[in-house]
């Protein structure tokens, strides 16, 4: 076994500090409230805004889980970048293939 560098040994307690209990419970409450909101708004006749509300609320919920439960808010910045990269690449996949489908000459369905 070769020598370890002279860097001082750091201990395990380096991760994000434990979050507060109240913070977690409030987040759960917010998530459940958003769920009710989302179900309720879906029943209203809002036209295209139904979809905006659906996806907007989902995005907010996902952000809450990411930042609070998954601790992205307090953990190191690199993890925030990695997490956003996954979603950004998915956005590219959807956006550029939509660019095709939305601008195509409409094809008649075969039935």
């Amino acid at each position: 076994m070769n020598a370890r560098p002279a860097r001082p040994q750091r201990t395990h307690r380096s991760g994000p500090r434990p979050p507060s209990l109240a913070g977690n419970l409030w987040t759960l409450a917010a998530l459940l409230l958003l769920l009710v909101l989302s179900a309720g708004s879906a029943l209203l006749r809002l036209g295209p805004f139904n979809e905006v509300a659906n996806l907007g609320i989902a995005a907010v919920k996902a952000l809450l889980v990411l930042t609070v439960f998954m601790r992205l808010k307090t953990d190191n910045a690199l993890l925030r970048i990695v997490a956003s990269t996954g979603f950004a690449w998915l956005a590219v996949l959807i956006a550029l293939s939509l660019a095709d489908v939305l601008t195509r000459q409409p094809l008649l369905a075969p039935w």
Binding site: L96, A99, D100, L102, T103, R104, Q105
Partner: peptide
């Protein structure tokens, strides 16, 4: 069969 406009972008 990709749309012409998407082809231009790509």
């Amino acid at each position: 069969g990709q749309s012409m406009y998407a082809s231009i972008v790509f």
